[in-house]
Structure formats: C-alpha cells, structure tokens
Design a protein around this nucleic acid. Structure first.
Lengths: 193, 193
DNA sequence: GTCTATATGACGATAGAC
DNA sequence: GTCTATCGTCATATAGAC
C-alpha cells in the first residue's frame, strides 16, 4: 500500500494542473487526457483518484471556497467594525488575486452551473454569505446606511470584484493592491452612514 | 429563389433559439442538433445559414453588442453631463435585463473567449469603451472625482453590473428598476467630485 | 495502484438526393 | 435551398494485464 503522503501529493498535483488548465482553456476545452498528461499520470491512475472530470472540478471549487471562507472568518475575528472588516476583505481578495490568480479566477469567473450539479451561484456560497452577514451587521450598528441590503452589498463589493475581473483579463496595468486605497474609498463613500 | 424576407426570418429564428439555449444550458452543453431541433430546421439547412456553431455565437454577440452601443450613443446625445448619462446607462441596462434577460446574460455573463476567436473581454468591446469615454469626460469636466479612471469606472458601474448578475441568477426579489434609485445613489456618492 | 488498450457514444460537419 | 443519411473525430470512461 502506498504511503498516504505520496497519495496526497499526487492528488494535489492533479488539482493544481487541472486548475491551471481550467482557467487557461476553460473546463470544456480541457480533456481528461490533458489533465492526465500535465500530471504525468496515466488515465487509469487519474480515474483512481477522481471518479470523473466533474469530481475534479467540484473538489477544486470546494477547496478554494473553504480556504476563502476561513480567511474571512479570521478577518472577522481580527477586526471589530464592519468598515474595517470590509476593507480587510477587499485587501485579502486583491492580494489573493495577485498571489494566486488561478484560484480567484476559478472561484469568481467560472460558470460552475454549466458543469457542476451544485451551486446556484458563487454568491450563495459560504464566503459570500459571510460577507453579507458583515454588511448587515454594519447596517445594524449604524456604520452603513440603511438601504436595501443587496444594494449595499453590491455597492461595497461590486466595484472591487469588477476590478478583480479586469485584472484577470489583463486590463489593469498595476497590481490590484495599488488600487486598494482608492477603490476602498469609493466603496466606503457609497455606503457610509 | 426564396424571398429575402423569409430567409431573414429563419436566420432570426435560429439566432433566437440559439440565444435561448446558450443562456439556459451554456454554449458547450448546446449541440448543433439542439439548435436545429428548436428552430424546426434540418441540420443541412442550418449549415446553409451559418458556417458553423461558432459563427452563430459570433453573430449573436455582435448583434447584441451593436444594439447596446447604439443605445449608449442615443443616451449620450440625449443627456448632457456625465452624471445624467451614467444614470441613464444604468437605467437602460436594468430595463434591458428585465425585458430581455437572455441578451444581457449572453453579453455579460458568458466567457466568450472560450469559444470565440475574438474579444479579449466584453469590457474591451465598443459599448464599454463608450462608457469609459463618458466617465473620462466626467472627470475632465469636474463632475467626477479625479481618481484613477479604471477605479472610477468600476466604482460607478461595478455595483450595478453585479446587481444584474444577481438578478440573472435569481438572487434578487424585485425587478432591477426598483433598485435603480438606491444603487445609483451609491454609485454617485462614490465618485462625485 | 498503476499502466495500456479499447469500448462506447456524441458531436460537428459534409455528401448527395431531391 | 432543403432534406436525410452518414462520416470522421475525439472525449469520457472502463477492462484487464501487471
């Protein structure tokens, strides 16, 4: 029996290569054979690790989602007010995009519904529920204007998320963190009480 | 020889059905056979109207893009300041989404790069260039704060565009125009001089 | 567990009769 | 111009040897 460590490592390799391919060429333009080749494994072995192509996509999504969710929980703990929390979240998203564009691209930029049974939309997933909670709390505490919560949510994060899309598409000259102050100021002005 | 009118009508039918299928199931989950069946045509006939599946997608994109571009030009003519223009644009986008969700979904929500040779991103296409022009003019005229133009652009339109995504995903209870005033107020507060 | 070889089926696109 | 029938290709997934 193979050591668990080695097994883990191989699974990780598959996920990394799949993520790279999915974000570069898209899910449907990536064949199982592509993933297998990039991972230096045979087809049979790949199917030993994942039940099918969709399972790879689902695992990837779930991993990235959980990772972001934990980061958001840490931010929530570290900062007190909704204002500080939201800014920290945007900073985290910007920095994550620079550090690991593929993950962010896969999370935000992919129409998961087209190939995964799950998910209504990324925006119903755990991290975004948490973000909404923070915004609602901010309204309750009088930090944010008491407008329609969906509008407030999108006023704060809509701009920064769009910045992330633009960066991923190669349409922004500078790294995202360099836009942080200005784009946060805009978000803040739009909803502060 | 068939009357041009009838020919036009059939081509239109193909485009309408293709748009419906592409937005419901996605481009890759839609087969040429699906389009052909929905259009009440044979495969052969369909290939007589379009060179291949991609050509249908390209024509669709181009039609919707032009239609939006013309609407933006009309708005530009009708309104004087950048502020009024931007609000009118957002109103137009909101109303279009309610009237014809599929078109807006196809324009905004589709990763065209994955199946079309063209386009870096929707955001480099004509309508969005026009939007950026309007924002730049607004900064020049002192209506908008003189921050990084990309940030200003996304501060204004990022929130509303995200609202459109949410509506398309069925995550907003009310029709978009009912959020217009509040979401415009947010956008405006974020960038006004 | 890992490999190679292959079954199965779908899809895009064409050929050729009418 | 329109149809039916079909071809070639390729992708997913499995079988079975090692």
């Amino acid at each position: 029996m193979m050591k668990d460590e080695k097994k883990q490592e191989r699974q990780e390799k598959i996920l990394v290569e799949a993520l790279k391919l999915f974000t570069e060429k898209g899910y449907f333009n990536t064949s199982v054979s592509d993933i297998q080749t990039a991972s230096n494994l045979s087809v049979g072995t790949l199917y030993n690790y994942f039940h099918n192509k969709e399972a790879i996509a689902v695992t990837l999504f779930s991993n990235i989602e959980n990772c972001l969710y934990e980061a958001l929980c840490a931010i929530e703990k570290k900062h007190a007010g909704a204002c500080d929390r939201c800014k920290a979240i945007i900073r985290h998203l910007y920095e994550s995009t620079e550090r690991n564009a593929a993950s962010m691209q896969y999370l935000f930029y992919t129409k998961h519904r087209e190939f995964m049974e799950v998910e209504k939309s990324v925006f119903t997933s755990l991290p975004f529920v948490k973000m909404k909670e923070i915004v609602l709390q901010g309204q309750k505490d009088g930090e944010f204007r008491k407008i329609e919560p969906d509008v407030a949510m999108m006023a704060i994060f809509g701009g920064p998320i769009r910045m992330i899309y633009q960066r991923i598409d190669g349409l922004l000259a500078k790294p995202l963190p360099q836009y942080l102050e200005e784009s946060w100021e805009c978000a803040w002005r739009s909803v502060r009480a």
